[in-house]
Design a binder for these strands. Sequence first.
DNA 1: AAATAAATTTAGACAAATCTAAAAATATGT
DNA 2: ACATATTTTTAGATTTGTCTAAATTTATTT
Lengths: 220, 220
Amino acid sequence: MNAISHSEENYLKTVFHLGADGKQAVATNAIARSMKTKPSSVTDMMQRLGEKGLVNYRKYRGVSLTEAGKRAALSIIRKHRLWEVFLVEKLNFSWDEVHDVAEQLEHIKSEKLVDLLDQHLGFPQYDPHGDPIPGKDGNYPSREKQLLSQLPVNTKGICIGVKDSSASFLKYLDKNRISLGDKIHILEREDFDNSLLVTVADTEMRVSHQIAANLYLKIL
Amino acid sequence: MNAISHSEENYLKTVFHLGADGKQAVATNAIARSMKTKPSSVTDMMQRLGEKGLVNYRKYRGVSLTEAGKRAALSIIRKHRLWEVFLVEKLNFSWDEVHDVAEQLEHIKSEKLVDLLDQHLGFPQYDPHGDPIPGKDGNYPSREKQLLSQLPVNTKGICIGVKDSSASFLKYLDKNRISLGDKIHILEREDFDNSLLVTVADTEMRVSHQIAANLYLKIL
DNA sequence: AAATAAATTTAGACAAATCTAAAAATATGT
DNA sequence: ACATATTTTTAGATTTGTCTAAATTTATTT
Ligand SMILES: [Mn+2]
Ligand SMILES: [Mn+2]
Ligand SMILES: [Mn+2]
Ligand SMILES: [Mn+2]
């Protein structure tokens, strides 16, 4: 009776992400910008999701997810990230190529498929971009992490994730031999342009503010 | 420019199967029956597919696939069967559970995904039901095979496929320990009900005409 | 506090995919 | 060959998801 459509799923996921993991309300325009649709389409959809009890919609005031909406969003994100792990670990996709395919695979409906995929992958905790994989029961582990750009000189940490996961950024990291799991040591900050001198897995290099502002570290 | 929709793909596949693998024309009613839609919906869709150059549509005369339509159908069937192999071989689905999931997975659009999946599976030739997997280039190998019900007493063969691949038939075969690859020897035919006395992998058993009419053998 | 700007919603249109009911064409039986 | 049955198509409606243009509400600036 109340099946959630492909399109509705995409909207729910966007509301979740834009609203700080389902905690804040989100503006119509923000959703439209993020999904490359028009604000009027968003309004339409939010009214429908409101009627289905998946979002709290108040005219002109933005939307937030209901508990049911949050559960639905987490289930889609779980599938998205499990498929990303599959693509990278089993099929040898590179981490910059998986997003569009996972964007499709996340909509496949079969609980058994998700469970067996999870098992096949050894119950992974994080996706290839360092993002946590929501549990079957809907629990969403959050990890201690800080942007490289916000840490003081002399900090040591492990690179555990990316904020921007666009193909161009990920390819840049590949080219410069920066990978998740690498140990990073901040040697020096350049006041002029906020660039950093760091060692990444013991190799010294300079990273721009742009880069540093998109890399998450776990402090050691 | 002319992307083929989810729904159009399902129709193309049905026309392919009902028309003896794209060789014959197919009636509107046959398509509607097979897809559980109404004949009027089929007419609509066939007119659209006709305009797209994927079928030859002549009012009241049924439809056949064009070369482009055949290519599209084979590509979907290739994906469907590769995913079925994946589900059974890698995720341990049983062969009676894979169809509905593959029905969704076959619509995922990514050439790279299909190529890498094919490689990951070791370039399988047949799906879990014994059906051949079309090649990347669109070639469709056909296999010498005959229905068990149509073979004379004393024939020996290998069970290589099923005609009916409904869950109920497949579960029946599991229960009776009949699997693809088993050696079958026809010992006796009962004239009264056309049932057969056979050995399956050296175990003697009686199979009804219903069963025999849905099992394909390769004669030894 | 008006005036102006920005964000949001509404109204109306459209394409895709489906349906029901009615009309038209084709096939079948006597 | 004619009447009847069957198949197929057309006409018109509905739902989903989108759009543009206009109206409305909220926010910002002077
Ligand atoms: Mn998606
Ligand atoms: Mn990811
Ligand atoms: Mn399908
Ligand atoms: Mn199959």
